[in-house]
Design a protein around this nucleic acid. Structure first.
Lengths: 336, 336
DNA sequence: CTGTTAGCGCTTTCAG
DNA sequence: CTGAAAGCGCTAACAG
């Protein structure tokens, strides 16, 4: 039953006293092969337990049916949702997924891309790390003729393919919601200033306030480095204000969780004295006793899936088409 | 800068008017090549931006430096923690990771293994799905000479390599804790009866009770199919009991979350009228207002990492060594 | 419809 | 120390 070496095309050719090429064609259902031969070939192939040696095929065809996925950290639910969906899409197209975690380290990111290139992946999906400031890998992949599609955390460049989620819509909806609940003292706990994502949030925040003629107050916008300590510092700053805000949009759910914990600890009533909305829709709000008013959904799975579909289009259409940009719009949803 | 086709060994051989074999050796720092030639070769290689064609090498060496990871669902934090660590270990060994989600579907599981086999991965790490009853893939991989290490959710067989987490210790500690807090009415919300994991929990539960001479009461053990409805049904059964339990061990954190929600809704005071401990240590308990008394940690990351290390040993030691079994012991930890 | 031949890019005997 | 030649398993012109 168990052969030392797996059977090859040659062997089944020898057995049938026909040429390897005929066998190859028969196995691939090439139209110009007689039905009888095809049958005979397949029969023997089955008997010998033949399995094509994909590595040989990859080598020959210069195609690996493999795509690389590079993202900061698999253990973040946001990204695991994305890769989960990517794998589903890839699976449907008979591609396999190789993954690499950059851990937000630009060097490691570059190294992963190198590896993927050496493995001759047919394409790459990537969400860049928080500390990535320039993009040498774009030229690297371009030079190797490997298409790359960015998603979620995308470089701010024009000539690339990207799928991302516009953060503005969600912010505007959040402010709408707050205002319609009677809030005017709305503040923003933003992320590190150097992140484009922070910039975008702040811009949207200002725009949202402007729509309601609420004056922008500098002290209502604080930043956190996203560590628990940073988060605590940020909320403390706000709570210390003489005119404490009654509503807060926070950078993401992790920040919100930390911040709400502090608030609770200080005896301030959540969803009464102070209200929260945050980006991301962490899947567990439904279990939290005083969840935020709402969450701003960024559709990680959908982004990943769409990016994968785009990538497969690029892989299949060999011509280098125009840079494509697909935008999702963040949306306010009820937590859960 | 950017060549149409990447440079090959032949080209750099031609430029230097030496033979390809020499180039190959030089590039691989073969000892028998003169230092000067080696240098010259490397210089030209760099100039031409030479990159070895891994697919050719894989083909030749019958080795892909790739391992497959098969698990039920990447979007579960438990598994994303595991794969995250696996990727780290693999990365350190210069292996890449191909992943596949079985979605708890035995057919899909088999299909993934087939694909991995065709891709000629050097080894496989696998956590089997909830519905997998027999293990045709073990023979499949065996036949192909691909080592496979199971982790966490492992087949109940002797002759395989596995890393898993013993559920008993955690259960005993949980019961210890409950008893030392004065509880004697301790119940168990268990998973589907057909799961080995459920069986193991129940066995441990009985043992724990026995240690304190607490009589086992049939009605204190209920099962859930792990859906929210099932969870609700399970806790309802317990709450309806004339002698309602004051302490509950639940199958996992998801069950606990659902169940605690119901309890709260019915106006029963968490951590007062009724106390919980559950398996898994979901990373968010710290934010929950009335978290369970404790959690039973199962070390997904550690299991994954250890399984990966074992796999690399198997890959490197070509002989087929004795089946290895590595056991972690679940442990009671404070949530968070 | 089928066979012959060549070759993908690299490594590796075996000879010098 | 280096070169020539063969071959991994498969596919794809090009001829029949």
């Amino acid at each position: 039953m168990k052969e030392g070496k797996p059977a090859t095309i040659k062997e089944i050719a020898k057995r049938l006293k026909i040429s390897p090429s005929t066998v190859s064609r028969a196995l691939n259902d090439h139209p110009s092969i007689g039905l009888v031969t095809t049958m005979r070939v397949k029969k023997v192939a089955a008997e010998l337990n033949y399995e094509p040696n994909q590595t040989a095929i990859f080598f020959k065809q210069r195609k690996t049916f493999t795509v690389g996925v590079v993202l900061p950290n698999l253990s973040e639910p946001f990204f695991s949702a994305a890769i989960s969906e990517i794998e589903n899409v890839a699976n449907g197209k008979n591609y396999t997924v190789i993954m690499g975690q950059s851990m937000d380290d630009a060097d490691r990111e570059m190294k992963i891309l190198q590896t993927l290139k050496n493995h001759r992946v047919d394409g790459v999906l990537m969400s860049i790390g928080k500390n990535t400031r320039d993009y040498p890998f774009i030229d690297l992949m371009e030079g190797a003729g490997i298409p790359i599609v960015f998603f979620d955390c995308v470089p701010d460049l024009e000539h690339i393919h990207k799928v991302y989620c516009d953060l503005e819509t969600g912010m505007l909806e959040a402010i709408d919601r707050f205002v319609s609940c009677g809030h005017h003292a709305i503040s923003l706990i933003n992320g590190p200033t150097h992140l484009p994502a922070s910039l975008e949030r702040e811009k949207a925040y200002r725009k949202g306030l402007a729509q309601y003629n609420i004056r922008y107050k500098e002290e209502y916008v604080v930043n956190t480095d996203l560590t628990p300590e940073g988060n605590e510092a940020a909320i403390s700053q706000l709570l210390a204000l003489p005119d404490r805000p009654s509503a807060v949009v926070s950078f993401n759910d992790y920040v919100a969780l930390d911040v709400m914990k502090i608030v609770r600890k200080r005896g301030i009533a959540l969803n009464q004295d102070i209200h929260f909305i945050s980006y991301a829709n962490y899947p567990l709000w439904t279990y939290i006793e005083n969840p935020p008013l709402a969450s701003i959904e960024q559709f990680p799975g959908e982004q990943g899936g769409k990016a994968a579909e785009l990538l497969f289009q690029l892989i299949e259409a060999n011509g280098r088409p125009e840079p494509t940009r697909i935008t999702f719009h963040s949306r306010l949803v009820n937590p859960g």
